[in-house]
Structures are given as structure tokens and as C-alpha cells.
Amino acid sequence: MNDHQFDFSCDVLEQSHELPVLVDFWAQWCDPCRMLTPVLERIAEKFGGKVKLVKINTEEYPDIASRYNVSGIPNVKLFIDGSITDEFTGALPEAQIEQWLKRALPSRYSAEVKLAQDLVGEGKERQAAAILDEVLVNEADNIAALALMIRIRLFGHPDDALKLNERLEGEPGYGEFCDAVRTLGGLLQKDEDALPDDPVRERYRAALACLRSGAFSDALEAFIGVIRESRYYDDDGSRKACIAIFKYLGEDHPVTLKHRRVFDRALY
């Protein structure tokens, strides 16, 4: 957009109620700004229809730059519904900006994902999965939908969940979740006939059965029992299982809080 002919209130604030607006604060003398401009233009084109790019020369519009606390340039701010929702400063690599924008932009399917979450909470996983299938057909990189679908599929169809998990790998904030899914998926698919012969074998099999049924508390109790008797059975499988369950549920989950200290004591 030509930054000599625009009205900030109309072209940014009002427009952002209809479409997210990416504002690039720049200046002619700023070399990093000139490097960033074509990058932002390529990204805006790639996200066509999802975001509008506006360039504002801070030398020509110092009042706007001051109003929005632009202290260093290039400075890029994302406006949604009239407010700044995210921003960054400096000429970041193109791939990093794409990842940032993908996380910062609201999904067109946020209401559908929220409905699916509510359905899962009510135990209606089949209905939730049908909604998420439709979302992922239309928005394959919808991270929230992908993570929720993995949770739905993991215990009934671990092979499907592991394939979906590969698409989630590397997403910021999902590292521990992906690690947990990878470990749990392997345990759920384990060939029990190939388990090492050991006095704890049946207890370990019972722990796996509890895990498959989603009885996390019982599974943790059984895995911790195995750790106490045979610490490294099945390649340290019980310790790995417990850590994966804790990561999957979250540190503040009641089941995690109930068993975490007991687990720690069992190790030492």
C-alpha cells in the first residue's frame, strides 16, 4: 500500500475488524527495513486473503510511530479488531516470520475447534472427530485441531495418532506433547509376546492394559511398581511411560500431582 495516501484509522484500525492487518514500520535510511520489505510482501502474498500488509514510513508519520511505541525499526505489528495482538522487531528470517504469523493469525475455524473441545469434554469423541476432520481438510496446518485430533485418536488408533504427530513436530509449545505421544504410541503398539521374561512381566503387561484403557492413575501405579522391582525392565520402559503420561496430562493434572512424588522416590 502507498503509505503517502492512507488514513490510519480507516485503513488499519477499521480494516482490522474485517481482516488482520500487518503493519510494517520502516524508514528509507534503514537497511534492515529494505531487506525486510520484500520478505513481508512475499509472505503476505502467500497468506493471500488472510492478512493485509500496510507499510508506514516513520519519518513521514512520526505521530503514529510514537503513539504505538515504535522505538526501533523495522517493527512489525499485527492489528486485529483494532488492537495490536502481536509484534516483532528486526529483520527476522522469512521462515521464522511465517511461523510467527501462522501462530498469531486467528483461525477461521476457531469456533469449530472450540466446539470439538467441548464435545470431547462431554465424552462425545466421535462427533468431535467428525468436526476436526472437516477443519483439517480445509486448514491442514490448524495446530489446535491437529493436537486435539491426536488426543482423540491416540488410544484407539495409535498408528493414526503417530502419523498426525509427525505433522505437529517442531511446532513451538508442543515439544513435550509430541515426545509424550511418540512414547505412548510406541507402548500402545508394543508386541507383548516379545516382552523380556522377568518376574515383573505380568505387572508390566497389566500396566500396559491400564494405559490402553486410559486408566492413567492405575497405569502409573503399576509402572511405578515395576520400577521398584526391576528398574530397567523393557529398556527402562516403565520410567519412560511415567514421564510420557505426566507430559501428556500436564504437570498440574490431578493424576500427575498424585503420582509424581511417588515416582521420583521410586527412582532413587
Rank of each mutant, 00 (worst) to 15 (best):
L267Q: 08
R108H: 14
D236Y: 00
P74K: 03
L267E: 03
I227T: 02
E87P: 00
K77A: 02
L168N: 01
E229Y: 00
R34Q: 12
I80K: 01
I143R: 10
H253R: 09
C178F: 03
L78Q: 05
V200T: 12
K55E: 10
R103W: 01
V54L: 12
L13F: 09
A194C: 03
D63P: 00
M1K: 11
R67C: 03
S83P: 00
E87W: 05
R151L: 02
C10S: 15
N138D: 09
T89S: 13
K240Q: 13
Q5G: 00
P106R: 04
R153L: 15
A144L: 08
T89E: 09
D264C: 12
P172V: 04
Q28S: 13
R231H: 06
S230R: 10
Q15S: 13
E171Q: 12
F216K: 05
E122S: 14
R265P: 00
F8W: 13
V255A: 10
K190G: 01
I143M: 12
P106I: 02
L257V: 14
Q117N: 14
L136Y: 11
R203Q: 15
F223S: 05
L188Q: 08
A130N: 11
A215F: 11
A144Q: 11
G237K: 04
E134F: 05
F246V: 08
D193A: 15
A180T: 03
G173M: 03
F47K: 09
H4M: 13
L53Q: 10
I97M: 11
Y109V: 02
L19F: 02
V21F: 06
H259R: 15
E202L: 13
N2Q: 12
R205A: 10
G90M: 06
M1C: 11
R203P: 00
R203E: 15
K55H: 08
M1V: 14
E139N: 08
P199F: 10
D160C: 01
Q96T: 15
S238G: 08
R205S: 10
F6S: 06
P62G: 11
L146M: 12
A111M: 08
T85Y: 06
G121N: 12
K124W: 01
L257I: 08
K77P: 00
Y268T: 14
F155S: 04
D11T: 07
P196E: 11
Q189A: 09
P172A: 04
S16Y: 01
A128N: 09
E125V: 11
C33P: 05
L164D: 12
V255G: 06
G237E: 06
W29L: 08
L53C: 05
A27K: 11
P74V: 03
R151C: 08
E59G: 10
A111N: 12
D264Q: 14
A91E: 06
A95L: 14
H17D: 03
E251M: 13
L249M: 09
V255K: 09
N57I: 07
V23Q: 06
A128T: 12
D81I: 01
F216H: 07
V21M: 04
T85Q: 11
R231Y: 02
A241W: 04
I152S: 07
I97E: 09
P38E: 07
R231I: 02
S107V: 01
E139I: 10
L187C: 03
L19H: 07
C10D: 15
I80G: 02
A266I: 01
P172E: 05
L36S: 04
L257W: 04
S217N: 10
I64H: 05
T183V: 15
K52R: 15
I224M: 07
N165G: 06
A215G: 13
V200S: 06
A209R: 15
